[in-house]
Design a protein around this nucleic acid. Structure first.
Lengths: 550, 550
DNA sequence: CTGCACACGTGATTC
DNA sequence: TGAATCACGTGTGCA
């Protein structure tokens, strides 16, 4: 997954930096999304990037499309997964990816300084950014496709129609020429290509086929098929956070419907730029329910995602095997073997929490990032309780209270972590990646923003005072004298020198001891022309040069 | 303590809202600071507010004055302390205070809406704000008093001398008329009065007496008298965080020495205003080592504070008694009695961590906020290990590793919490007080600031183009022509009409069809005077009126 | 009683 | 190896 977000070169560095030999990477171990991956990586596939927008339910019961899964062709497998302990869950990957992005974008890691930015190709930025989008039905291209239940085939020329494609600038920056959206009953599949791919029934069928094949088991996912055991607990859990104050059309106070005038994203300058602007611009629902309506608003629709034989569960199985093995034998530092999973042991927690409706609670964000908690997908045939059961702790007693408690605490932690991720995404300069530093950086960033803002405000007020605030009249020309003089009028207007447009010139006259013989001001069209006749005591040429150099 | 920060009415509300009957508040239970309290609350005392600035040591070994203790006369005792379980530590109080402030300043608690702001009197704001200040010796009034070892008696008229009193505007807003600073060997005592109190040897002596009396036991506090057991561990702990990147002259990136031009704090408008501006303005070292150099930079000087019979230790003793009692008997909901401290039990963790130099580690912030951890002040005669030992956990084994580990983890948590507090102090609108909401609010605040800033920047650029940017020269006087003409020069400066100071006048001429016969511009001192000779076709008088009405 | 938020101790991981 | 961060389970206070 990491390689899907970071560019290939960045990944190379990443691997080199982490001292991990990428020689024996087992791309199949922990391969999470075979369908999308196959779709993208298949020979001759024009698609560089595939994103599945998963249906979820918002706080108010509306459906929302959010990041479900994705694969981005980026020169390699999930190479960062060569973790023998199997603890590199999706959460970890994503964290690592963000971490790397931040480090590359100007973190304090000085070694990286040389290859700071520019290392992450734009398609990956698009891919990463999309992780933080979500769409209401009818909104954006995925939403439109979902609502109309029709696919959209969008050539580059139509990107600008923001109504269809709010991430248009991102896509253009990424170099995409074609974007296709295909609706399914569990969500919308988005494919992006660097080439101009023309719509054809063949290709469309290929897309639909490969995806439906992936979803073949346990579909009919719009039906809410939760188990009876967890049903009530789930539904209460789903809505008990209702008063959180989040409007799902906003993300952390940012109105998402009003697209600000920042649609023009720059050509690849720096990740910092991108990363800072990405969550701001484009008028899209960045992070919306991923962060706002995270655990509490997702619906059992997700369960389908957990049910079908898609990669996450499979990956988790492997991981939990590794985990259990490690946990029991307490041996580590083994040279990343894939054949070490002897002595699988799920004991010690058989009574515990995994019967809880965590899958129903998990928003997609949750499913992705804390995939180890999405274990009760109960794929038939696999052992129960495949939770890594990370740190051994006695199940306390046979009481049932602490089980829910544990779940709740887990969710709370996850929520907090989500916020931390979100914070990371809005704070530009993060020195270190630990939480304390992040908070510190956020604070300094806030104070800096506040300082800048008040500074600008003061400046604005200073400037607004003497100069004309609006386009028409001066707020108050400080002094205005009118004298009658025969049949003419003598009008004197007195302004402070400061902020007067010709103040510099006049000051220069004074500094250079130039006598102003005569001065006139005439109004021509929409311009004011001042004409001075000056006499310099010394060299005229020098004076001329001096004036021109102003 | 809460009542000292919040106003009386706010406290009333607070009590009412928490469904706590304020009838039987035992002001003596947990009464932490009898000395300052007595000083302030004594009959006839002119002082409304007392703050003890405690000497600590900064990262680089310099001495720093930080908040040590305080009491603010606010119509009541420490009524929020009526916690039967005794878990309302200072940290909790402070948290509560901040919480209430934020709730009052526009939180989502709708019940409070009516009495949102205006409820917290300004002296309390001053008091609260002071919690976040610290001063190097010679800086600010406390620093000056410390350095010179002379008391300062500052009447309101001298507040403006920011060199002496950086919190001048706060003090003025608070309505203080007299501020006095008295140096002691452990810090500086600050007293503030709403009246004009004239300096008198009598009053000075009274101040010194009552305070020295409070410090009578175990003074000579500048001496660093740590136990041998914790000495080395302390010294390493004290400086091992050195590379955190914090400059102690800054607070989260804000330069503290450069006093920004925001000394003019408004008259009481809203708490939100205050709370937002307070940590920004005034050029003081807000939060400086409280946050940056938190645990790791404080020195054993603090130990004196823990040693002497001042209130914190006493309070903690009581608390730990409550705590232990509660922990053992597991009975609660007792109607806030102060006589419940039977069955004091410190067992269960006698081998554990409290022999560690946590007291020596604690910065003042730490001492205040996590007072329960400052327990090894080892006041002679009290039992050792008076840590509440909150949640029972076996000491694992006799290994020594986990003990340090526990300490480290504690410090990490504390550091994180410090950052959270700091974040709370810079984010104006906090909906709820839990960490997740805080992060969310911070994120939305950041995005809002970013939006505003970019908005302003765009506007500025739009406006800044034609108008003069800075005070001296135009950024670019759009057109400047110079022609030689005999021995004179003809200079033509062309500016856009918009934002030109006399644009309005010229526009008015044009609108009224007034012919401009002649126009001159002369520079006089720091003003630019435009003189026009105009001729109006019609009624001169009308024109004159029209012009004057501009 | 219950849901929720927090702090704590602990195991694990990473460098 | 040791220091640092993190996640987890748990105890507990509060509404």
């Amino acid at each position: 997954m990491a390689v899907e977000v970071l560019g290939g070169r960045a990944l190379d560095y990443l691997l080199a930096a982490s001292h991990a030999s990428s020689s024996d990477q087992h791309a199949t171990v922990g391969s999470g999304v075979p369908d999308l991956q196959n779709l993208v990586e298949a020979r001759g596939s024009p698609w560089a990037c595939a994103i599945f927008w998963q249906i979820s339910r918002s706080q108010f019961g509306e459906f929302v499309l959010g990041w479900g899964d994705g694969h981005c062709r980026a020169l390699g497998g999930r190479a960062d997964d060569d973790d023998p302990r199997g603890r590199t869950t999706l959460q970890r990957m994503r964290k690592r990816v963000l971490e790397r992005l931040h480090v590359l974008s100007g973190g304090s890691d000085d070694e990286n300084y040389a290859l700071r930015l520019d290392q992450v190709a734009d398609p990956e930025i698009y891919f990463l950014a999309s992780m933080y989008f979500s769409f209401a039905p009818g909104e954006g291209a995925p939403g439109r496709s979902l609502l109309s239940q029709k696919h959209l085939w969008i050539p580059e020329s139509a990107f600008a129609g923001a109504d269809y494609f709010v991430r248009a600038s991102l896509a253009r920056t990424a170099g995409f020429r074609t974007v296709v959206l295909v609706p399914f009953d569990t969500g919308v599949l988005e494919l992006a290509s660097m080439d101009s791919v023309f719509e054809s029934p063949d290709e469309l069928q290929r897309i639909k086929a490969v995806f439906v094949h992936g979803l073949s088991k346990g579909t009919a996912a719009t039906a809410c098929d939760m188990e009876s055991s967890g049903a009530t607990a789930c539904s209460t859990s789903c809505f008990r956070f209702g008063g959180d104050g989040w409007d799902h059309t906003k993300i952390f106070g940012k109105d998402l419907n009003a697209a600000p005038a920042r649609m023009n994203m720059k050509v690849p300058t720096s990740i910092a730029e991108h990363h800072r602007e990405m969550p701001l611009g484009d008028g899209a629902k960045l992070l919306s329910w991923n962060l706002n309506n995270n655990l509490e608003e997702a619906t059992p629709v997700h369960r389908a995602y957990l049910h079908h034989g898609n990669g996450v569960v499979m990956e988790e199985t492997v991981m939990s095997q590794f985990q259990s093995q490690k946990q029991q034998q307490h041996q580590q530092q083994q040279p990343r073997p894939h054949a070490q999973l002897k002595q699988i042991d799920f004991g010690g927690n058989s009574t515990s929490s995994r019967a809880m409706p965590i899958g129903c609670l998990g928003s997609l964000e949750f499913v992705l990032s804390d995939a180890k908690a999405s274990r009760n997908g109960e794929k038939p045939g696999t052992t129960e309780d495949r939770r890594p059961r990370k740190r051994g702790r006695k199940p306390a007693n046979g009481r049932e209270e602490p089980l829910n408690h544990v779940e709740a605490e887990r969710q709370r932690r996850e929520k907090l972590n989500q916020r931390f991720y979100a914070l990371r995404s809005v704070v530009p300069n993060i020195s270190k990646m630990d939480k304390a530093s992040l908070l510190g950086d956020a604070i300094s960033y806030i104070t800096e923003l506040q300082r800048k803002l008040t500074e600008m405000e003061a400046e604005r007020e200073m400037l607004g005072e003497p100069a004309s605030m609006e386009q028409n009249s001066c707020t108050h020309p400080p002094h205005l004298d009118v004298d009658s003089l025969h049949d003419e009028l003598l009008v004197r207007v007195c302004c402070p020198l400061v902020t007067h447009p010709i103040a510099g010139v006049i000051q220069a006259f004074a500094d250079s001891q130039i006598d102003v013989v005569d001065s006139k001001v005439v109004l021509s069209d929409d311009k004011v022309t001042h004409t001075f006749v000056v006499r310099s005591p010394g060299a005229e040429q020098l004076t001329k040069e001096k004036l021109v150099s102003l």
